[in-house]
């Protein structure tokens, strides 16, 4: 081992995650090389000082900044609770609609190939969903209504697993 290598391996050495054989080699070098010993000791000291800083750091936020920030956030929340609620409801509605569309497409067999594949492999491992979709297919897609919560959360997870830009449905 040379000094240069040692300098770039110090992180693992200092936090104890280094491979034991490599560690031995490094110790051996250290015992023979004064500059590296000094380098290592001061590197350790630097890390220790930073840790001390972490322990003593106070999350100081100037009082007037704190007061302004609190006032801003509180008044914004007070002023716009309807807006926030509206937004939340919109998000919930959009999501419910998306889930329903996907369940209908799954029942009618018009899912895109990527989504169909995800759905198939999920159903193979999930008796709850495979039962639900089998029954839905038997009943026909015009019968489908909002699925129960358990199914819903699985469908949502499935939609999120889809690569971005991928369409759920066949055109």
């Amino acid at each position: 081992m040379i000094c240069k290598e040692l300098a770039y391996m110090l992180a693992d050495y200092c936090n104890g995650t280094m491979d034991p054989r490599l560690r031995e080699e490094l110790d051996d070098h250290l015992s023979r090389c004064e500059p590296c010993m000094a380098f290592t000791k001061t590197f350790r000291a630097t890390c220790a000082e930073t840790r001390k800083l972490r322990e003593t750091i106070e999350y100081t936020i100037p009082r007037e900044v704190r007061e302004r920030l609190e006032m801003f956030v509180r008044s914004a929340v007070l002023k716009y609770p309807e807006k926030v609620n509206e937004y939340r409801e919109q998000v919930a509605r959009d999501r419910r609609e998306k889930v329903l569309k996907l369940v209908r497409a799954a029942t009618a067999g018009t899912l895109s190939s990527a989504t169909a594949l995800l759905m198939e492999s999920h159903c193979a491992a999930c008796p709850e969903c495979s039962g639900y979709f089998d029954a839905a297919r038997m009943a026909g897609d015009h019968q489908v209504t909002d699925p129960p919560e358990g199914i819903r959360s699985h469908v949502i997870a499935l939609m999120q697993a889809l690569p971005p830009g991928e369409e759920f449905f066949l055109a």
């Binding site: 240069k4 590296c36 001061t42």
Partner: peptide, 8 residues
Amino acid sequence: GMHASPMD
């Protein structure tokens, strides 16, 4: 690959 400057 040795330290080029003295080390305190």
